[in-house]
Computed example of a mutant assay.
Amino acid sequence: MRALFLAGAALIAAPLSAQDHSAHKPQAQQPEAEMDHCAMGHLPPEQCPPKKDEAEPKPMEDMGDQMDHSEHDMGGDKSAPGAAPESAVPQRAFEGPRHAADAIWGEQAMASARRQLAQENGGMKTGMVMVERLEARVPTDGGDTGYVWDAQAWYGGDINRFVLKTEGEGEFGGELEDAEVQALFSRAIGPFWDLQAGVRFDPEPDTRGHLVLGVQGLAPYMFHVDGALFLSDEGDLTARIEAEYDQKITQRLILQPRIEIEASAQDIPQREIAAGITKVEPGVRLRYEIEREFAPYIGVEYEAKTFGTADLARANGEDPDGLKLLVGLRAWF
């Protein structure tokens, strides 16, 4: 029995000793494989080494004019890695008719659809009414309290518009001193400028008509500018320029410096105006936009007649300059 047991143990041990145990070495004896974080997408592309095919220099057929500079685009292709470059356009995109949908829906139906598309993407007609100034003016020297209005409205597209402007001033409880209405055709002559031409009618201080030629737009550093030349039916040439700047203190509290300058090419005795710069009005307004369309404001403005016009005012017993406190409203819809 003992001999049989020893013989069986020998038979079992023989195949076990014949097995290859080289793969069963301890883990510490095998070199650890380095994890490729670039391949797994754990690192940004600029921190990863170039791929093998990209690292190898490409053969150049000629070191002279035959060098391919297509990959030296300074703008850089922002398409996803492995995708077609942004500049790649399939050749089949240039094949076929210009308006392929005409073959399905008909030329007449698609022509109407294209007109509607153009209208809804740049050809729309819109309008706006802007009351720039509607204010009471209290003189600091104790004179009569006056009022001023300055508003404009327009209707049209991005290029051509009809513009209606009006402004004037007077005294509470007194007569209207100045008033005017302008009807203008406005055409865009640049991204930020409109050329305007039309007519102006003055009901006060005396009835008079004018031809108008001016510009309106946004000057560098975000200055809003409105300037015009006026040729009256009496042959008088005058000019006016207004400039203002919106300085945001907060999203709703806005400080607006503003200046208005008027000039005349000749003496106009009926309006007590002398040739040269006739009036300068610098001022500043602080408004609070309760809503974007509704903003009350306070401010101060210095109004001064200048040069010969100031002399005419003194000769008539008037004060040629003065400081005024302002309370007003700016609104649009």
Rank of each mutant, 00 (worst) to 15 (best):
D141L: 12
T145C: 14
Q152H: 07
E171V: 11
F162P: 00
D141F: 13
G146T: 10
A151M: 11
G143S: 08
W154V: 12
E167F: 06
V163F: 00
Y155A: 00
E169I: 01
E171A: 05
F172W: 10
W149H: 11
R161S: 01
D158H: 08
Q152F: 06
Q152T: 02
Q152L: 07
F162C: 01
D150G: 08
V148E: 04
F172P: 03
R161H: 07
E177C: 07
G157P: 06
A179V: 01
G143R: 08
G157C: 03
Y147S: 06
G142Q: 05
D178M: 08
G156E: 09
L176V: 15
G168A: 08
E167T: 09
G142I: 12
F162R: 01
G170Q: 07
G142P: 10
L164S: 02
G173R: 12
G142K: 06
T145Q: 12
G157L: 11
T166G: 04
N160A: 07
G170F: 10
A153T: 05
D158W: 11
A179S: 05
Y155I: 02
E177I: 04
G143L: 14
G170S: 08
T145P: 13
R161T: 00
G170K: 10
D141Q: 14
D158N: 03
E169S: 02
L164G: 01
N160K: 02
T145R: 15
A151F: 10
A153Y: 05
E171K: 15
G168M: 07
G173F: 15
K165L: 12
D178P: 00
F172L: 13
